[in-house]
Amino acid sequence: PDPCYDENSLPRRCVPEFVNAAFGKEVQASSTCGRPSTRQCDASDPKRAHPPSYLTDLNNAGNMTCWRSESFPRHSPQNVSLTLSLGKKFEVTYVSLQFCSPRPESVAIYKSMDYGKTWVPYQFYSSQCRRLYGKPSRASVTKQNEQEALCTDGYTDLYPLTGGLIAFSTLDGRPSAQDFDNSPVLQDWVTATDIRVVFSRPHLQGNRDTDVSEDAPGYFYSVGEFQVGGRCKCNGHASRCGKDKEGRLVCDCKHNTEGPECDRCKAFHYDRPWQRANAREANECLACTCNLHARRCRFNMELYKLSGRKSGGVCLNCRHNTAGRHCHYCKEGFYRDVSRPITDRRACKACDCHPVGAAGKTCNQTTGQCPCKDGVTGLTCNRCAKGYQQSRSPIAPCIKIP
């Protein structure tokens, strides 16, 4: 059964399964050890290499493969970044990093919603929040700032020296998380196409400021697992994501929606505006009512409001001689053949008013009766009435018999 429809085939909200969106994806690291090779790391030797691909590969318990940065002198704090492209918009639930080195003392997490063009802060970890990131430490979260990055001194402890974790839960402590369906702010907050982690300061054993001799041991960053937990963003209109013809990740849209995130209605399905599905209402896109006489329609907000938010579609280019918002009546010069349904291609018949006997070309919409000149009769005004005979004048085609 399709999760996007219930047992009565009625639409209902559906979401793709929860996944580690980072798994198997490429990570761009600003620094990786092994070029040139050192005693611990050689990029050209698979047994001694620590490439970024180890961040998102399959990790078995007890067999963690670790990415590792270059080694830096301890008196020279270096920013090292890991950038992960998710390939499309995801609704991110958490970002986690499991370290093979000691956890950094300061870490910043950023997200992009436009495939890496712009970045916004997502979360900061530091014992010096104000100095490094200009943020107060452990600020209280309110509805006014729940879509802003916070800074905390949690997860910054040096210990454990290996295997330490940083885990950022995107909705944790956000007041509107309980009413996520009705919070466009948080729906936006969890949306990301890319995640970037920047290690800003290492944890150094000993004194950072005094131990600056040339032969003092340096430091490096090393991470075994970079996870981004979440769901492919489909706005409640798809239960799975797959690759399109160009190999791009896209939602398998239902409810008459389309787009990478099912973020618009299909053509001809704009009888009401696009909306995200929620637990109460699937908000599927509805086809315009055009009685099979039009292939295109447009949405009119005024009409939608006037209808009590039921129908706002306006049919375009009504065919088969029909007219009107729903192609529901016959255009001028045609009349309704009541023996056929309005959906019939021949529901509208030509008035066929006589060029001489009729006073005009437009007939009665329901009966088809043309307006006849004096003394003329018939549906199309093509005969003289009883007591009249044809004259030679096209202005008065029938005259009274003397």
Binding site: V356, R383, C384, A385, P394, I395, P397, C398
Partner: peptide, 23 residues
Amino acid sequence: EVMPTLDMTLFDWTDYEDLKPDT
């Protein structure tokens, strides 16, 4: 009684050439 349909050939269009329908 059904009357005959109007016979277009019987009309004299001399003064009404601009009203004459295409045939």
